[in-house]
């Protein structure tokens, strides 16, 4: 907190608001992970953190460092783009794996129950 003295008040308030908003959205998403009952419902809430959560915090960082260094600092855009592009890949693979495992489990269950009979 040693370099914050030479930064205008509006930038600090915008940064503070964006950081708090992003963190709250991410927490709601993670809380949904605890609260949802089934796997397919659990996959949805964390995308709050990967879209608006990441977006807000990256925006806060862009505003803060741009004002601090008096030139646009945009490399946080890379974080947002990277997360936006990679989330669909991981979630699609995971859901496909879950479907595959559900099918395998129900088949195995039928096989074992018929073996008992």
């Amino acid at each position: 907190m040693n370099r914050t003295a030479d930064i205008p008040a509006w930038a600090e308030i915008v940064t503070a608001a964006l950081v708090l908003l992003g963190a709250t959205i991410t927490l709601i998403g993670a809380f949904g992970l605890v609260r949802m009952k089934t796997f397919y419902a659990r996959v949805h809430p964390p995308t709050l953190g990967t879209t608006l959560g990441t977006g807000c915090i990256a925006m806060a960082s862009i505003v803060y460092f741009s004002v601090l260094q008096t030139r646009p600092v945009l490399h946080e855009v890379l974080l947002v783009l990277f997360v936006l592009v990679t989330t669909p890949v991981t979630l699609m693979l995971l859901v496909r794996a879950a479907l595959f495992r559900d099918e395998a489990k129900s088949e195995a269950g039928e096989a074992s129950s018929s073996a008992i009979e």
Partner: peptide, 11 residues
């Protein structure tokens, strides 16, 4: 500055 420090800690 206090507002920013506080909200960063909260976040």
């Amino acid at each position: 500055t206090l507002v920013l420090a506080w909200s960063l800690t909260a976040a």
